[in-house]
Simulated scan of single mutants.
Amino acid sequence: MTTARDRFDGDGAPVLEVEDLHTRFTTPRGVVRAVDGVSLSLAPGETLGLVGESGSGKSVLGRTLMGLIAGGPTTEVTGTVRIGGQAVHELTAKQRRRLWGPEIAMVFQDPMTSLNPVRRIGVHLTDPLRLHLGLGRREARERAAELLDRVGIPEPRRRLDQYPHELSGGMRQRVMIAVALSCDPSVLVADEPTTALDVTVQKQILDLLAGIAAERRMATILISHDLGAVEGRTDRVAVMYAGRIVEKAPTKDLFAAPHHPYAEALIGSVPALSAAPHTVLRAIDGTPPDMANPPDGCRFAPRCGRAEDRCRTEPPVLAETAIDRTVACHFPVDGPAAVPVQEAAR
């Protein structure tokens, strides 16, 4: 099987390309613009961190990239998602299912509910191996045991015959990772992969994902609220707010000097180890907007201390401030408004 990684490694082109992606849900309260004009790309072996408050659209974006959310009576998806040059939402449902495993896979955020409770662990693993790779029953079982061993689960052969409820939360998350990696995907979407896990297990899971991504040159999107994990384990970061990306930058640059006021506020809300005991935590004033009735202009303006009249009427455009760095803000933290790189160089 020829994968996206095979097609793109030689010329260095992106393995994942997203252009002006919109995901809208029709509800009794109106149309919810969960993802509203997102564009991004991902190269083989690259890890992109996707951060933002709950409700900013991160998980909906991940599921839309997978093709799990497609057009329907109450759902509208527009824009383009290309994996290995294939436009995901132009494919039939059957064709999209063929992508899940060999081309793109997802680690869902809740290990307690992501596995079918009435199916043994071995079935979760062998089904994709038999469907996508054409392995026989015995060969698939051997491969499944190897995968469980690879993700650090002891006694892997015995675990194949167990049910999800017999495993701890950390072991269930490792099983989810093994399932996602079973067909050697070109792109992995890890949606809050350490939710509800203790700190020690969180580190183990993140180390495991980073090691496998480096070993296989797998492109990874790490969706997380944990800015510490994102800072130490990603190459670039995209900050989402109210369905839109408001800043994209190399990880080191973003954490050293965020340009968007929202990105600055997010980073500022992280407790500092050097802070004195009982230091009051910084919080972002206000609440995220109602996505069925978002405000005019910049959606962060009602919560932004730098907002002026222009911000409340004119939506900012995501523009480049430097090579590989973009921000959507009329009055960014570093001073002048963002302009295209070509104009900034004059």
Rank of each mutant, 00 (worst) to 15 (best):
residue 149 D to A: 15
residue 156 P to A: 06
residue 234 T to F: 07
residue 344 A to V: 04
residue 92 T to A: 07
residue 291 M to K: 10
residue 253 D to S: 13
residue 282 R to H: 14
residue 322 A to F: 03
residue 169 G to Q: 05
residue 304 C to S: 11
residue 304 C to W: 02
residue 98 R to I: 02
residue 85 G to Y: 01
residue 208 L to K: 02
residue 91 L to T: 04
residue 240 M to Y: 03
residue 279 T to I: 11
residue 146 E to K: 12
residue 196 A to K: 06
residue 298 C to A: 12
residue 21 L to S: 05
residue 17 E to M: 09
residue 335 G to V: 14
residue 114 S to V: 06
residue 308 E to L: 14
residue 131 L to C: 12
residue 81 V to S: 06
residue 283 A to F: 14
residue 33 R to L: 08
residue 170 G to D: 03
residue 11 D to C: 12
residue 232 G to P: 01
residue 192 E to I: 14
residue 213 A to G: 00
residue 299 R to M: 09
residue 76 E to N: 06
residue 308 E to P: 04
residue 11 D to G: 13
residue 262 Y to H: 12
residue 152 G to W: 05
residue 271 P to S: 08
residue 164 P to N: 03
residue 254 L to S: 05
residue 188 L to W: 05
residue 189 V to P: 00
residue 178 A to S: 09
residue 48 L to D: 01
residue 128 P to L: 09
residue 120 R to D: 04
residue 70 A to W: 09
residue 216 R to G: 01
residue 306 R to P: 02
residue 325 R to G: 08
residue 311 C to D: 04
residue 142 E to G: 14
residue 274 S to K: 10
residue 335 G to E: 13
residue 81 V to Q: 04
residue 346 R to W: 11
residue 92 T to D: 09
residue 278 H to Y: 14
residue 341 V to L: 15
residue 201 V to N: 04
residue 318 L to Y: 10
residue 134 G to S: 11
residue 221 I to P: 01
residue 168 S to T: 00
residue 277 P to W: 10
residue 298 C to L: 08
residue 235 D to K: 03
residue 78 T to P: 05
residue 85 G to P: 01
residue 151 V to K: 02
residue 175 V to C: 03
residue 261 P to F: 00
residue 106 M to D: 00
residue 218 M to A: 12
residue 17 E to R: 15
residue 241 Y to D: 04
residue 146 E to P: 06
residue 4 A to E: 05
residue 134 G to P: 13
residue 329 C to I: 13
residue 133 L to H: 10
residue 232 G to I: 05
residue 205 I to R: 01
residue 90 E to F: 07
residue 112 M to T: 13
residue 290 D to M: 08
